[in-house]
């Protein structure tokens, strides 16, 4: 490395703050030639029921939140929450999943798997099948749906505890 390059090797703090602000505004710097080739940004859960939207809906209703209130709390576009809950093929933005995980107090890595942004672990796939089989979209959670939801959340948490 030349002397000139050594001088350049450490970005100055003013520039770094400006760039960090730009990153915050864009919320993603993802570059993906390789990521696309590996299918990392396609739905990786073809063999798993698409339960991410239903899980979000149940978690929201359990907390008594409207779609709008959830969108505000998570700082996510209202239309995106609506699409997640109503269109099962929707693959949300990674940032959205992270924000929802924060607000709904679910482990972000597991939600990322359920959302189709990462390969899910086996225990999660099996739990998703059971959850899909026992739940239906309704205005109020039935006792059985509530039980199914709680079981599923338990697996989400346990799967995270196990690494």
């Amino acid at each position: 490395m030349t002397e000139n390059m050594k001088n350049k090797a450490i970005p100055n703090s003013k520039w770094l703050r400006r760039m960090a602000d730009a990153e915050d505004l864009c919320t993603s710097v993802a570059v993906g030639g390789l990521a696309q080739d590996l299918g990392m940004f396609q739905s990786a859960v073809a063999e798993v029921p698409k339960v991410f939207g239903r899980l979000i809906e149940y978690a929201r209703r359990e907390r008594g939140l409207s779609v709008e209130a959830l969108a505000n709390a998570a700082n996510v576009e209202l239309a995106e929450i609506v699409a997640i809950e109503t269109e099962h093929d929707t693959v949300p933005q990674p940032r959205t999943v992270y924000q929802l995980a924060q607000v709904l107090k679910h482990p972000a890595p597991r939600l990322t798997e359920l959302a189709g942004l990462a390969q899910p672990r086996k225990v999660l796939s099996e739990a998703a099948v059971r959850f899909a089989a026992r739940s239906e979209p309704m205005s109020k959670l039935s006792d059985d749906e509530k039980e199914a939801f709680e079981e599923f959340v338990k697996v989400l948490v346990e799967a995270s505890d196990g690494g």
């Binding site: 915050d24 919320t27 710097v29 993802a30 990521a35 700082n75 990674p94 992270y98 924060q102």
Partner: peptide, 20 residues
Amino acid sequence: IDYLESAPWNWNVQELQRKG
């Protein structure tokens, strides 16, 4: 650049009082 990514917890989100 074949691959580049930054994890969400590196972002500042004022609404959540979270510092990247």
